[in-house]
Design a protein around this nucleic acid. Structure first.
Length: 522
RNA sequence: GCGCCAGUAGCUCAGUCGGAUAGAGCAACGGAUUUCUAAUCCGUAGGUCGCAAGUUCGAAUCUUGCCUGGCGCACCA
């Protein structure tokens, strides 16, 4: 990618010089046009060791770079206030843009195997908007990881064992038999619906969750049932606990069996086998994460709702404890906490509770504003921001909705290209390329794509791709405004067609990662 | 009481590895359309980056303390 190439050139050039800088140069993008296309702060870093002022060093660095033929072919360096600013020349920029392609992107290879676990909602009720948030973030994260060549699988953990499920069954049969819902049981219209049906309530609930998620474009490689942890041949709960015991992290007290999670930063130790001999929910969780390791995953990523963040410490503790096992090496475990979504309608908060009938479900939101808008809005913000989501606003603003803004850019591109054929490309100039300001801007944005998705993937932050997509659309719309294509001179037209084609492919890539559609017309 | 997350423009939020003069969208106001789809573009206005100290050439960003809001603190799941 362009940025890395320039970094390499500069690092090379400086390491050959007498300036004595051997570590890698990292470029940043300046905020102001007059500061060029890229900038580096080497001079500040060198100031201490060289005992010279940053201005003086920046001056010298620029001299070295501008003497270097590999660098000067591409751009020009100039010092300002201690920064080294780099302005690329149009020819160098265009040559790289012309040669670049989404199919030729080159990402570092790695043997890491990611497992992204997300949603994992209890099968005791319909999905709410919060689940929708983890769902779109998780699915886009998996798309993103795969796109940069990282091996990643996705998984939904089904809590189909334990008290809550029993209570759920009891609630449905209670209504069915006219005896009413037990204390602390589940209420709501969906319980009454399930009671009317002959279907197994748990199966019905799972099927419906799966359908809603599929409708949202969210599919999983694996639906892992808690109940499958214990099988006639293999009892994974027993195995996981005995592994921990072998490592010395299990003890008995007050008639129960405990895991010493305080050794790994938890507030208190946790019970895994109750005094009555039954396993706790946490025991299943230990076993579940144990199977992630036995299945060969080395990078565990869990998306939890903020209402479950209390488990983070203990689960991290068990994964850390498992590092003592001989087949486990170099495992990392990252928990992404998705903050809750507050739903509003006309500025009034809409409460969501499984225990009352008054409930807005994920499905309702999708019906109301559409899948693309639902995904875009839920994906747009960083997961650790508390999201206020006003439905009436999302509907009202639908005419200048950001999701339409980015899709419209794509539709405009498709429309123009449909009126042209590749014959026009013969007029392309190879030398003496001129670029208008908005052409230049759009070219630089396209070339940034590779860098953006790589860093978004490393930081497990798909929302950065949303941000980029919006910026790209913005720079396209501006380009469109000032650079006619159909009426342009042949060589200029050819040049702009190249730009459109590159844009079209990058937009398609972005939409693919975000999971929204790419309309050819609107 | 303890823990996690947040606090940036009227509202909703970006802000990379600490960089130069703080960034968008919406809302407000003023403009642009004989045109490749105006679902667009241009401009104006709007700031004590919660508060206070510290680290340093430089802090919205890192450290510490405090304030406010959300969530969580079971031998429930």
């Amino acid at each position: 990618m362009l940025k890395r190439e320039i970094e390499r050139i500069i690092t090379n050039s400086l390491s050959k010089s007498d300036i004595g800088f051997s570590s890698e140069i990292v470029l940043e993008a300046p905020r102001f046009l007059e500061h060029g296309d890229y900038a580096t702060n080497v001079a500040f870093q060198l100031a201490k060791t060289l005992k010279r002022s940053p201005m003086e060093i920046a001056d010298k660095v620029c001299g070295i770079l501008n003497q270097d033929s590999g660098f000067s072919e591409l751009g020009k360096a100039s010092p300002l206030n201690g920064f080294v600013n780099i302005a690329l020349n149009n020819q160098g920029l265009w040559t790289r843009f012309f040669a670049w392609s989404v199919d030729k992107m080159d990402f570092p290879e790695s043997d890491d195997r990611f497992l992204v676990e997300y949603v994992s909602a209890n099968p005791t009720g319909p999905l709410h908007i919060g689940h929708g948030r983890w769902a779109v973030i998780g699915s886009s994260l998996v798309h993103l990881l795969k796109r940069v060549g990282i091996k990643a699988d996705s998984e939904f953990y089904i809590n189909d064992a334990g008290n809550q499920v029993n209570l759920f069954y009891a609630s449905v049969t209670g209504v069915r038999d006219g005896k009413g819902v037990p204390e602390n049981g589940y209420h709501g219209a969906y319980i009454a619906e399930l009671a009317k049906s002959d279907q197994d309530p748990l199966q019905a609930m799972l099927t419906s969750q799966r359908q809603v998620l599929k409708g949202l474009g969210v599919e999983f490689d694996e639906w892992f049932k808690e109940s499958s942890l214990i099988q006639p041949q293999i009892n994974n709960v027993e195995r996981a606990i005995s592994e921990l015991k072998g490592l010395g992290f299990i003890y008995e007290s007050e008639g129960a069996v405990w895991f010493k999670s305080t050794d790994f930063g938890d507030d208190k130790d946790r019970v895994v086998i109750k005094a009555d001999g039954s396993y706790t929910y946490f025991a299943s969780d230990i076993a579940y994460h144990y199977t992630k390791l036995t299945r060969g995953y080395t990078r565990l990523v869990n998306l939890f709702g903020a209402d479950h963040h209390g488990y983070v410490h203990r689960i991290k503790a068990c994964v850390k404890a498992f590092k003592g096992i001989n087949f486990v090496d170099d495992v990392t475990f990252k928990v992404i906490i998705g903050q809750l979504v507050n739903l509003f309608r006309d500025g009034q908060p809409v409460r969501m509770s499984k225990r009352t009938g008054d409930m807005i479900m994920l499905e309702d939101v999708m019906d109301e504003i559409g899948v693309d808008a639902t995904r875009y809005f839920l994906l747009e913000k960083s997961p650790d921001t508390h999201l206020d989501f006003d439905l009436s606003l999302a509907v009202k603003q639908s005419s200048d909705n950001p999701v339409f803004y980015v899709q419209y850019a794509y539709a405009r591109i498709c429309n123009i290209l449909s009126k042209l054929d590749d014959g026009q490309l013969n007029a392309i100039k190879k030398d003496g390329i001129e670029l208008s300001p908005s052409e230049r801007d759009v070219v630089l944005e396209v070339l940034r794509f590779e860098d953006v998705i790589w860093h978004s993937a490393l930081q497990l932050s798909p929302h950065k791709v949303v941000h980029y997509t919006y910026i790209l659309a913005k720079s396209f719309h501006l380009f469109y405004e000032f650079n006619p294509i159909l009426r342009a001179e042949p060589h200029q037209q050819a040049q702009r067609i190249i730009i459109l084609k590159q844009l079209q492919l990058v937009f398609k890539e972005c939409f693919g990662i975000l999971g929204i559609s790419a309309p050819q017309s609107m």
